[in-house]
Write a protein that binds this DNA or RNA. Structure first.
Lengths: 304, 304
DNA sequence: GCTGATAATTTAGAAAAACTAATCTATAGA
DNA sequence: TCTATAGATTAGTTTTTCTAAATTATCAGC
């Protein structure tokens, strides 16, 4: 059985008053009224059964007993303060762990991360490309980039960019035997599919795009299915067919001529990439800095 | 500006849980429900913005960060505990300071104190014979013996013995030229007066005693006035006259034949000797022990 | 010797923190 | 499969802590 301490807040108030030599000064330090400090000290004195301060009308001084207690309290408080301070300081030294959907990591984040490193050399980012859903309470992950429709209750979430999809293919394919002038021409192409997850109909797919393009006599389900965008994109780059993927993700591939967009029709989606983290984490300097950079970097990318 | 600590109680709960490796065990140690500990730790994690425990369904373990914080908290808590424990322990080593009305100290307490010392050799009593009213908050006095009518609001008070007064004089006086067979004989004696304090009529005096004795033609105001009982008693012992003093106080002088009680009439008084101390102090072991001894010793004395 | 300023205290009541009871969840072990 | 268990959650209560305002007894400057 541990020794039962008096109320901790009373001890803290006493320590402050003892150190400052004045209740008012202690009150200011603790950001409370002098009355509060006076109450706390009275509580403590009642607890012990003897007074810790000798009072004059306008001043106080420690009694012999009060003076005995003081150094123990000051030392203990310092230890607690140091621990908490270290915890906050360490947080800034520790790598910022970002869990990201692999395709976002591979197609965008990895490429831009050096900018962030240049801007904030003191923050080391550890990128954890993983499909599994993050449990912030248990995995030691600071923030994640998630793909979905939102909202994310109990989490801080910023929508980054939405998943408007368009058909893309290798330039070689365009120059090949099959012409791609009109969406109907897709009937003679291999369609590359991505199956993100189970709930069909919520994510844009070939059937939806073809319908939006007014093409009706094409079997939208034919062609290989990939379990991730990046695989479908790779297949498209290699001339394996036409993939229906996020414009945003393949922007670099388009810019560099590895992919082309044979049609202008973009299918809007209610899916977005989100920056998410525990609500409290967004107050942490490095998490906040990363979020701000990420949002700005994506915005500048989108305005190109 | 000091570093702002998280709520101290949350830190304590976390320390206990970290040390015990379990919320339930910590709850038991802190004498609260596991829910309370869970809440406190959640508060702390929200405060820092990251988790300190990794949770499985039926167990917890410290995260890397939690482990950083732990030793600082344990050390600090130990320091506080040691300080408070020392304060309580020291209290027992420190002399028990009793402030007493000088006459009570001189005529009763000094004589009996050795009994107390024998019974409780570990408690050193310091007897402070002083008329001045004690201010427990400022004078470092543990308890006092006060004379008065009570009640004593805001103080712990035990009535010890009341101030029933009777005339006493030296045996030599009885054998002298003036016979003292009847109260009326006092007309030819020197009356020794004690003037305790200002409020006349509240304490028994010669006028009251003589009236109670049915004697009317004596000037009750003649004779010397002393400002303390002990002086009047000394005067009576030395044959200086007849003093009207507390039977209790002069019991030893009567027993030893230094004084005699010429008449049986005792004037009851609403004045008592009281044991008083701050309400909280009565819980302190040594104060409590002293009070118990004092009450018992006086009771046994009165039953002689 | 006044007078205003000051440090602490007291009281009553408001605000915030801490706690509990009851319920829920996901498992480990029988 | 069933039960017991550790922890989480929710809602509401209790306790603690705090403040505002009034009070007290100086001290310092005039």
């Amino acid at each position: 059985m541990r020794f039962r301490l008096p109320p901790l807040n009373a001890l803290r108030a006493f320590e402050a008053a003892g150190r400052c030599g004045s209740m008012s000064a202690a009150a200011e330090e603790l950001a409370v009224t002098p009355a509060a400090v006076s109450h706390q000290i009275k509580t403590l004195e009642d607890y012990f059964g003897f007074s810790l301060f000798a009072r004059s009308v306008r001043s106080i001084r420690l009694t012999e007993r009060g003076a005995v207690l003081m150094p123990y309290l000051s030392d203990g408080l310092e230890s607690w303060t140091e621990g908490c301070r270290k915890l906050v300081a360490d947080d800034n030294d520790r790598p910022l762990v970002i869990s990201s959907a692999p395709v976002f990591a591979g197609k965008w984040l990895v490429r831009r991360l050096s900018e962030f490193n240049d801007l904030h050399p003191q923050i080391t980012v550890r990128l954890d490309g993983s499909l599994s859903v993050v449990d912030f309470a248990n995995d030691e992950v600071d923030a994640a980039i998630r793909f979905g429709t939102g909202p994310y209750p109990d989490l801080h979430a910023d929508a980054l960019v939405n998943e408007d999809v368009a058909p893309v293919c290798s330039p070689a394919l365009l120059e090949g035997p099959v012409e791609l002038r009109h969406p109907a021409d897709l009937a003679r192409c291999t369609l590359l599919h991505v199956d993100w997850y189970a709930a069909a109909g919520t994510q844009p797919d070939w059937a939806m795009w073809l319908k939006a393009a007014g093409v009706e006599n094409i079997d939208a389900s034919r062609g290989p299915v990939f379990t991730s965008d990046s695989l479908a994109v790779e297949a498209a780059i290699n001339g394996g067919g036409v993939a229906l993927v996020s414009e945003f993700l393949v922007r670099q591939d388009l810019d560099r001529g590895r992919l082309v967009k044979p049609f202008d029709l973009v299918l809007p989606s209610n899916h977005w990439y989100w920056f998410v983290c525990p609500k409290e984490s967004i107050e942490r300097p490095k998490v906040n800095v990363f979020r701000d950079w990420l949002v700005a970097a994506i915005a500048s990318d989108s305005n190109l």
